[in-house]
Design a binder for these strands. Structure first.
Lengths: 140, 140
DNA sequence: TTATGTAAAGATAATAATTCTCCTTTAAGA
DNA sequence: TCTTAAAGGAGAATTATTATCTTTACATAA
């Protein structure tokens, strides 16, 4: 994604356009592997040597709050960030910290049809996500 | 669940039966609301004033490793423990830290049938869990 | 029933991820 | 350009969890 488009997205949300925000947003798009805040920090620091970890967290929070990024919990301890904000599910490795996006409109339809017919007592569903746990094959 | 049955479960798994383990296992059963380690600690400390937080974590890990408890990640920062180890899903509150268990064999069947027919490239599925996010109604 | 080896408990320090505080800088509109 | 509220930076603080090390106490077997 172009910087110009990222700028527009920030403006659209009423967020100030700062070099740090552009850099972090770009970083999450480039590091397309659900990076941790630390990974993002390391990446961004190449071009912005003075950026602080606190800024990375603050910017990520702002971007998540405005729907420009999304946040996933790893099986271990850290939050992971995702440039993809469309509806999607996640594949979690049961033996490593790998996470992959999983798109499947067919399963989305099955789930949404199912829950349209079957309410959950005293609960108003906003979103249904799958956590698919297993092993990645053919990985180096 | 009776203490005697908890004892047997520990023995069955080759774990030593200790008062701390019994107390912690009982606590998670009694606090049937996905307690945090801290909540469990506070509860257990009433009867075992000398128990340490480290013991709570160690015992919980041992119980989870042996399938006597399960572990869920909250949307925020801490692990939550669950006395229920059967296959089930979770309802997450989008505006609080509440988590509830959700059982539904029908949806289990739909999912397992679906994924039996539709492999995910380069991924071997071990488990599929739903995270259903929304709002609890009629709560005090 | 007591002795003994080992697993587990307890105390405390360490670590890791994240958040907070406080002060400085900067983007964006007047 | 000036103003000011928003954002960034540095570093301390917090929170949850893990590690280390010593002490205690299960569980088996004499």
């Amino acid at each position: 994604m172009k910087t110009i488009k990222l700028r527009d997205k920030l403006i659209e949300k009423g967020l100030k356009v700062t070099p740090q925000r552009i850099a972090i947003l770009e970083a999450v798009h480039k590091l397309n592997s659900h990076p941790t805040a630390e990974k993002i920090f390391d990446f961004v620091r190449k071009d912005h040597p003075n950026i602080s970890m606190a800024t990375v967290y603050k910017v990520l929070d702002a971007l998540v709050a405005n729907g420009l990024l999304s946040k996933v919990k790893s099986e271990k301890d850290s939050m992971r960030y995702d440039a993809v904000t469309d509806k999607h599910h996640h594949l979690y490795s049961s033996d490593s910290e790998d996470i992959a996006d999983y798109y499947n409109d067919e399963i989305n339809k099955i789930l949404s049809d199912y829950f349209k017919e079957h309410n959950i007592t005293d609960f108003e569903i906003e979103d249904v996500r799958l956590q698919i746990i297993g092993k990645f094959k053919n990985r180096n």
